[in-house]
Amino acid sequence: MIEVQNLEKHYLVAEKEAGIKGSLQSFFKRQTKTVKAVDGVSFQIASGEMVGFLGANGAGKTTTLKMLSGLLHPSAGVARVAGFVPFERRSSFLKSITLIMGQKQQLMWDLPALDSFLVNQAIYEISDSDYQATMREFTELLELEGVLKKQVRKLSLGERMKCELAAALLHRPKVLFLDEPTIGLDVNMQVKIREFIREYNQRFNATVILTSHYMADVTALCKRIIVVDKGKIIFDGDFSGLLETASPIKIIGLQLERQLSATDLQSYGTLSSLEGLNATFRVARSEVSQRSAKMLSELPIADITIEDPPIEEIIGQLFSRAEVRA
């Protein structure tokens, strides 16, 4: 469904020193430098797959999505989405994709969302019966009852995001580029949007690329993740592969029956925290079973947990490693 080969995007960025002197220098002689926002990215995504696109700010995730949706002209390389070259902006291509960019709105601010939906119906050439059916489904899934006839500017952020999502998916696109779809929303609303995306993927076998700073979005929805750093892919695979590659440790959490000192616990692994009756250790993956057995037999334990480190930490380690290599 999506094929990308050696995709690159370079920007010419103006640079200026701070202060009046810098402004004057820049006025007479502008300094520029070329920034490689995306630097030779290649991957393939099959129909119906949901892929998490991870990376720090400025890593090149959004630029890649913008090239895949036809907004940006690639500096080099090839991208094909649903059999189309995105930048050509063929009508059939635009009808088969959607790009949701955080809170960038396509709804008309002063009118009820329903008016914008009707415009989209005409622009995307959706038949009346399909429009009615989709609206019924979305109203139910996103709980839009009573929201659609209110002026958009009077909606809460969560209500507006749900309407934005409905407007962006009204034409039932086969490929979804979701760039921070839950940004700024409260936890309940994040869960609802996540559920909706999952449901949409299953019902329409849609291909989804998702970027999000909320790791819970990615872990809940995507089996495969692609990690980008400084415009290059530094990991492409499933979560378990990521854990093995980037995180050679596990975290053992203990709830003790009585207070122990750090000295008492030192010999069981790297003690990362000790607060009251709760202690956590960082232990090499290969030693987890041996160490935990030893703890269980020798320490007064009320409860024990063995977990992977938080995904944010794992990604962070991956970035540091990429930095060291560079």
Binding site: L71, S91, I97, T98, Q105, Y124
Partner: peptide, 12 residues
């Protein structure tokens, strides 16, 4: 403001 992108994504 970047809202032109929203217009570019539509098949019109």
């Amino acid at each position: 403001q970047g809202t032109f992108s929203v217009k570019l994504l539509r098949p019109i």
